[in-house]
């Protein structure tokens, strides 16, 4: 009950921010439309709609990190969290209350991207539904990053770190915008040591119906999601104690 009330409040705070609608839904749609237009004029395999859409659905989740980190850091800064810490709410109420509202928003973002892709020529198949299901562990990974950053940084720092740095890292190291083979070497090794490219490769495999191709990427995503979530919980509890 307490957790649901808090989750409901967080959902309202996020959805009432016009920037959420722009970056959460508008920006991924703009990317799909723009890159599909480029692809129509200069065909590039990477930007074919069945390659592009899974990448954009993963990239769009970088904004979930930004949204969750922003709301937590703002709550810390405004003392709302301090007020709530003096109520009977437990740490688990806070952590789930911040995490749960982001999941339906993430899945909705993914579905909206696929609907747009269908209009741009993506074949309708049941694999789209599977892709929306497989986006959940990827969402948890990005939300955990948000929980982590929001527990450590101020809202101004969150804007720079999640809004600029993380979004760029997640773009460059994911193989969405250019083939990592083209760079190769250490860059590729670093990319494959991080979860972003695995999330994209997994989503691409799911959309193609190549379920054996989901592995080992799913393990990378789940491993990072679990580790980041655990670290985020530790850091959240630490800042809670410091209050």
């Amino acid at each position: 009950m307490r957790m649901l009330t808090f989750a409901n409040r967080n959902a309202k705070e996020i959805l009432r921010d016009p920037l959420t609608l722009f970056f959460g839904l508008g920006f991924p749609l703009v990317l799909i439309l723009l890159l599909s237009a480029i692809q129509a004029n200069i065909p590039v395999e990477l930007f074919e709609i069945q390659h592009l859409t899974p990448g954009v659905t993963v990239f769009g989740l970088a904004f979930m990190t930004l949204f969750s980190a922003t709301i937590i850091s703002k709550d810390r800064g405004s003392s709302l969290l301090q007020r709530l810490y003096t109520t009977p709410m437990t740490p688990i109420d806070f952590i789930l209350g911040y995490t749960l509202p982001m999941l339906p928003i993430s899945v909705t973002q993914c579905i909206v991207c696929y609907i747009a892709a269908i209009f741009l020529g993506l074949d309708i198949s049941v694999n789209i539904l599977y892709a929306a299901v497989f986006i959940i562990p990827v969402s948890i990974l990005y939300i955990a990053l948000g929980l982590l950053c929001g527990s450590v940084f101020t809202d101004k720092q969150v804007g720079g770190i999640c809004g600029a740095l993380l979004t760029n890292l997640s773009a460059w190291l994911s193989g969405i915008w250019f083939d990592l083979e083209l760079v190769g070497g250490t860059f590729k090794k670093i990319s494959y040591a991080l979860p972003f490219v695995h999330a994209v490769d997994m989503e691409r495999a799911v959309l193609l119906g190549d379920f054996s191709g989901v592995f080992p990427h799913l393990w990378w995503v789940l491993g990072y999601a679990t580790a980041l979530f655990a670290l985020a919980v530790v850091l959240f509890l630490r800042q809670m104690k410091r209050q």
Binding site: M1, R2, L4, T5, F6, N8, R9, K12, E13, R16, D17, S78, S79, L80, Q82, R83, L84, T87, P88, M89, D93
Partner: peptide, 21 residues
């Protein structure tokens, strides 16, 4: 002041009622 800025006055009060069960 420690209030939730995007929520209305009523919703802020509902939030506190909810967290107190």
């Amino acid at each position: 002041t420690a209030v939730a800025p995007s929520l209305s006055v009523q919703e802020n009060l509902e939030l506190m009622c909810g967290v107190h069960g």
